[in-house]
C-alpha cells in the first residue's frame, strides 16, 4: 500500500508542479497560431533537458516560437545564423586584447544564453557544428585556459532547411544523435492560416507574458525525473529500440533488415524514456503509460535510424519504419 501512496503523492505533486504547463501553452498559443506539435515538442525538450533539431520550410514560426518561449520563461535568447564562413570563435567567444587593461580578456559568444536558435545549422562547416554540439553535450565551453559553465536552462533549437541542399554540410549521424528530438513542422491548417493573415493585416500581434522564471524550469525538470516509469514500459522502450537494430528478430519487420544500416543507439533509449516522462508530466500524470512513449517515439527516433540505399531506392522513410515498429511491437 505504501507504493500506492507514493504514486498518489507523486501524482498530486506533479499536478501541482505542472500547473504552469497550461498557462505556458496558453501564452504560446497567443502568439503562435497552430503548430501544436511544435509547442509540445519544445516543452518536452525544455522539461527533459534535451535539444531540438527542427526541420521545416522558412516562415513557419520557428524563430518566433523560441523567442516567445524565452519571453514566457524570462530567459535570454540568441539567434545565430549559421553561414559557411562562421568560425567557432564567433559562436563560443574568444580572447581579445584590452588596451585599457593591457591584457587579454574573454569575450563570450552568443552561446552564453538560455535559449539558442541555431538557424540553418547545416550551412556552417563541420568545425562550427562540432563546437556547438560539444557545448550542447558538455554544457560548458572552454575559451583559452578557462572553462565556463553554460547558463541553466540551456536549450538549443537548431533548424535545417529540407529543400536547399546545395552548399550545405549535413550533420553526421554521430552529431545528429545528440539532439533529443527532431521535429518536422508542416504548413498550418486553412483556418490557422486565415488567423495569421488577420493578425498581420490588423498589425495587432498579441504578446506573450512572462509567467515563469528559469528556476521554475529547473525545478520542474527535477520533478520530471521523478515521474514513475514501470519496468513494463522500460521493456517496451527497449523492444522498440531493439526493433530498429535487429528488425529480423520481430515478426513482420523482417523486410527492414536490409533497409536499416544503423539502428538506434542507447542514447535513443535514454532520450525516449526521458521524453516519455516529460510528456507524462505535460499530461499531468505521475507515471508513464505506453501512450506517452508512442507520442514522442517518432520525434525521438526519426533522426537516429540510418537508412540504406535500398530503403532510399524504395522510398522508405524512417518514419514509416517507426510506425511499422509501433504497430508490430506488443504494447504492455
Amino acid at each position: 500500500m505504501e507504493q500506492s501512496v507514493d504514486i498518489r503523492e507523486l501524482n498530486e505533486r506533479i499536478k501541482n508542479e505542472s500547473s504552469f504547463v497550461d498557462l505556458l501553452t496558453i501564452e504560446m498559443n497567443k502568439v503562435i497560431v497552430g503548430q501544436k506539435h511544435l509547442i509540445e515538442g519544445l516543452l518536452v525538450g525544455l522539461l527533459s533537458d534535451g535539444h531540438i533539431l527542427l526541420e521545416g520550410l522558412p516562415g513557419l514560426a520557428k524563430t518566433l516560437a523560441i523567442n516567445t518561449l524565452a519571453t514566457i520563461v524570462d530567459a535570454d535568447f540568441s539567434r545565430i545564423q549559421f553561414t559557411p564562413d562562421l568560425l567557432p570563435a564567433d559562436l563560443l567567444g574568444t580572447m581579445i586584447y584590452s588596451q585599457k587593461k593591457e591584457e587579454f580578456v574573454i569575450k563570450k559568444g552568443p552561446i552564453f544564453t538560455n535559449f539558442v536558435l541555431a538557424d540553418e545549422i547545416n550551412r556552417a562547416p563541420a568545425k562550427v557544428q562540432s563546437a556547438l554540439l560539444e557545448a550542447m553535450q558538455e554544457r560548458q565551453v572552454t575559451i583559452g585556459d578557462t572553462t565556463y559553465k553554460l547558463d541553466k536552462p540551456f536549450l538549443v533549437m537548431a533548424t535545417q532547411n529540407p529543400i536547399e541542399q546545395e552548399g550545405t554540410y549535413p550533420l553526421p549521424e554521430a552529431q545528429v544523435d545528440r539532439f533529443m528530438l527532431k521535429l518536422v513542422i508542416d504548413y498550418p491548417q486553412k483556418q490557422e492560416e486565415q488567423m495569421i493573415i488577420r493578425h498581420n493585416l490588423a498589425q495587432s500581434f498579441p504578446k506573450a507574458s512572462t509567467i515563469l522564471k528559469p528556476d521554475d524550469i529547473i525545478r520542474a525538470r527535477t520533478v520530471v525525473k521523478d515521474v514513475y516509469m514501470d519496468e513494463k514500459i522500460e521493456k517496451y522502450i527497449v523492444d522498440i529500440v531493439f526493433a530498429t537494430r535487429f528488425p529480423d528478430d520481430y515478426k513482420g519487420l523482417e523486410k527492414y533488415k536490409d533497409m536499416i544500416s544503423t539502428g538506434c543507439s542507447p542514447r535513443a533509449s535514454i532520450s525516449l524514456s526521458m521524453a516519455a516522462k516529460a510528456y507524462a508530466f505535460i499530461k499531468r500524470r505521475g507515471y508513464v503509460i505506453p501512450e506517452d512513449v508512442r507520442a514522442v517515439c517518432i520525434d525521438v527516433l526519426r533522426h537516429r535510424i540510418g537508412l540504406s540505399y535500398e530503403a532510399e531506392a524504395n522510398n522508405v522513410t524512417s518514419v514509416e519504419i517507426i510506425n511499422d515498429i509501433l504497430n508490430t511491437v506488443e504494447v504492455p
Binding site: M1, Q3, S4, D6, I7, N11, Y228, D230, K232, I233, G286, Y287, V288, I289, P290, P332
Partner: peptide, 8 residues
C-alpha cells in the same frame, strides 16, 4: 493504473 502506476 495497476500495471504502470503501482496502483493497488
Amino acid at each position: 493504473l495497476v500495471k504502470f502506476a503501482k496502483f493497488n
